[in-house]
Amino acid sequence: MKRFLLYLTVAIITFTIGYNINLIYFSDRAPEQPINFSHKVHAADNSIPCLYCHIYADKSTISGVPSVQKCMGCHKIIKTDSPEIQKVVSYWEKKEPIPWIKVYNLPDYVYFSHKRHVKASVPCQRCHGDVAKMDRITRQTVIFGVPFLRVSPLKMGWCLDCHKNGAKEFIGGPVRNGTDCWTCHK
């Protein structure tokens, strides 16, 4: 009986650990998007700046996903024969927006402002990883071709770490009132 209890306890504990390891480090790794969009092609090969498509990042709390019109602006001419581009065209012709899957998702009670961070010249890569190397957007670093751990866990401790110490490189010191709860929660 005693032994059974021990086994049970061990099983429960390890089950929880396993569950949480997945949840914290492996969930929403690199979801398959409706269109196989490559940041590598756009940002690296053609060196399009981030703000060319994510037009609201320096104006609003959210960075904004490019509208279908924006995509079509270039792809009316460029690479029109690619099957992926034809998918975009079909969305455009159906007058439907593309239902992208959110990779970076914050809880409702966190009020993160892209604008403040862009204006403080925090590079996008600081939180979003080197997207220019990613064919499919992912929150994990790739080591020897194996996706491993997140670039940004999007946990509060990670935010505060930068607000307290890491921000030196951008604003020369800790963020002013950067640890006050009401800076990000309202």
């Binding site: 396993g18 949480n20 492996f26 996903v65 007058k95 927006p97 593309i98 992208w100």
Partner: peptide, 20 residues
């Protein structure tokens, strides 16, 4: 646990842009 978390993963949030 790991497998269950994988199965249990919530439907991903969607990011719907403007058409125009």
């Amino acid at each position: 646990g790991f497998a269950l978390a994988e199965l249990n993963a919530p439907n991903p949030a969607r990011l719907i842009p403007y058409l125009i």
